[in-house]
């Protein structure tokens, strides 16, 4: 049996690490100081998880909402911008060539219109496909980085 009092480390180890020190336990049975120290710790930390949980009395997400809205507003998507520009130019040329055809200006407008429609359509489709592929790859890359790490 241990004759001197338990060290503070030993007392805490008995209470919090659930360690069993047979020699120490024997001392505790006969020593008021050590017994009370152990009891004091047990009482203090008993049911501590039932303590009232601190709560925030403000809206924690407010800046996040403002930030996400700003992102949506400032989102300049180049492929979509390019698509819109090409669409606009294609349509303008189409209209001009149609009008010039009507006014019998000597311009091979029917030929020009057909090729403009085909080229504009082709370019628009290519740009859209590239955009979809790029954003898909970006997403896959981000997910891989997060979930494939071990």
């Amino acid at each position: 049996m241990k004759n001197s009092h338990l060290l503070e480390e030993e007392i805490q180890a008995i209470v919090f690490e659930q360690k069993d020190f047979s020699g120490l336990n024997e001392h505790v049975q006969y020593c008021n100081r050590c017994k009370n120290s152990i009891e004091a710790y047990k009482l203090m930390f008993k049911d501590l998880e039932d303590f009232p949980q601190p709560m925030f009395d403000f809206h924690v997400q407010a800046p996040v909402k403002m930030y996400s809205q700003k992102i949506i507003r400032n989102h300049f998507h180049f492929p979509i911008f390019l698509t819109a520009l090409l669409g606009f130019l294609g349509l303008s040329f189409g209209v001009i060539s149609y009008l010039s055809n009507n006014k019998s200006v000597k311009l091979e407008s029917t030929w020009l219109s057909t090729w403009l429609v085909i080229c504009t359509g082709g370019i628009l489709l290519t740009v859209l496909v590239i955009d979809v592929v790029i954003s898909y790859e970006k997403k896959i890359k981000a997910l891989n980085r997060i979930f494939m790490q071990h």
Binding site: F56, F58, V60, Q61, A62, P63, V64, Y67
Partner: peptide
């Protein structure tokens, strides 16, 4: 301020 920064 700190908590809002944390979540941002």
């Amino acid at each position: 301020d700190l908590v809002q920064d944390v979540y941002l």
